[in-house]
């Protein structure tokens, strides 16, 4: 067995690694080079400008403004999505109180409902919610008015104070289903007797959640956190479809900046510089998130 191991491994690993290097690593490497040029992206001509793009970036208020929005997303999106995901997963898997440890009635149906946004592409979600948020004929304002909450009706995506949160809500909606399923699967692997013991000891649902579920699911939550942090640092697609960063740059994110500067202003050099900064930010955040959330592993079996 040992004799034939390497040729076999190489056969399987080398082609994908080569593809990965060519289509992922090489563009990354090129971005670093391009970020030190004034390349306009319309010809092969360019001048090397050193760190000028990074200096420009440092003084670009639009970049800082976009970065601030990414940070808000970074703070909110993982926390809100994970909390809602945990709550729903608990209800669907161990929330029932019929004597056995099981989910609430109809839990398989709810699982399907929560997961369904995952089946839609981001583009569809963006267009769908743009219409839901339409201040005049949208579903949301119509529903609020129908139940007499006219005062809560908003211009949503047209109001700079509200637009970003409206987009956060869509991101939570779109992502939470996946984490309900993910956390649910993790909960299934937690031995039932632990929950039974807690129930016998008279632990409240709240205590069960934070003293038992969260610690036992910590690995999964950690993964969820990293994924959501990356989604928060990106969030380009929804913003591009729903607001293009408006009104008045109130929903601008770094991804939208990169796109707008590169494709809108034909400044691919500068756009790449923003991308490079973004790369390091996302990398650092991922490393920090993994470090901060590191805990002792709990052996279940």
């Amino acid at each position: 067995m040992k004799h034939g191991k390497w040729p076999l491994l190489a056969t399987f690993l080398l082609p994908p690694l080569a593809l990965y290097a060519y289509f992922v690593l090489s563009p990354y490497a090129q971005t670093f080079v391009i970020s030190t040029t004034d390349w306009h992206g319309l010809s092969r001509n360019y001048n090397v400008v050193g760190l000028d793009n990074f200096k420009k970036l440092w003084n670009d208020e639009h970049v800082w403004n976009a970065l601030l929005h990414n940070l808000w997303l970074l703070l909110l999106l993982p926390v809100v999505t994970i909390l809602i995901g945990l709550f729903l997963a608990t209800m669907l898997n161990v929330g029932g109180r019929s004597g056995r440890i099981t989910g609430v009635r109809g839990s398989s149906f709810y699982k399907l409902v929560y997961f369904s946004p995952q089946m839609l592409s981001v583009a569809v979600i963006g267009v769908l919610w743009t219409e839901v948020y339409n201040p005049r004929s949208g579903l949301l304002n119509a529903a609020l008015r129908a139940i007499g909450l006219d005062g809560l009706a908003q211009i949503w995506l047209g109001d700079p104070d509200v637009a970003l949160w409206a987009i956060v809500a869509v991101m939570v909606w779109a992502n939470v289903g996946f984490y309900v399923v993910l956390f649910g699967a993790a909960m299934q692997s937690v031995p039932k007797d632990i929950y039974e013991a807690a129930a016998l000891d008279g632990a409240s649902r709240f205590a069960t959640m934070f003293k038992i579920t969260v610690p036992l699911l910590w690995d999964t939550i950690q993964v969820a956190w990293v994924y959501l942090a990356i989604i928060a640092m990106d969030s380009f697609a929804l913003v591009q479809i729903m607001t293009r960063g408006g009104p008045s740059f109130s929903t601008d994110v770094i991804g939208e900046r990169v796109y707008d500067v590169s494709f809108g202003d034909s400044q691919f050099g500068y756009g790449s510089a923003i991308g490079v900064v973004m790369f390091f930010l996302t990398l650092s955040i991922t490393v920090v998130a993994l470090q901060l959330t590191r805990r002792e592993r709990i052996e279940l079996s």
Partner: peptide
């Protein structure tokens, strides 16, 4: 101006 216009494309 029509109410809600800022939110319309």
């Amino acid at each position: 101006i029509l109410e809600g216009s800022p939110g319309l494309d």
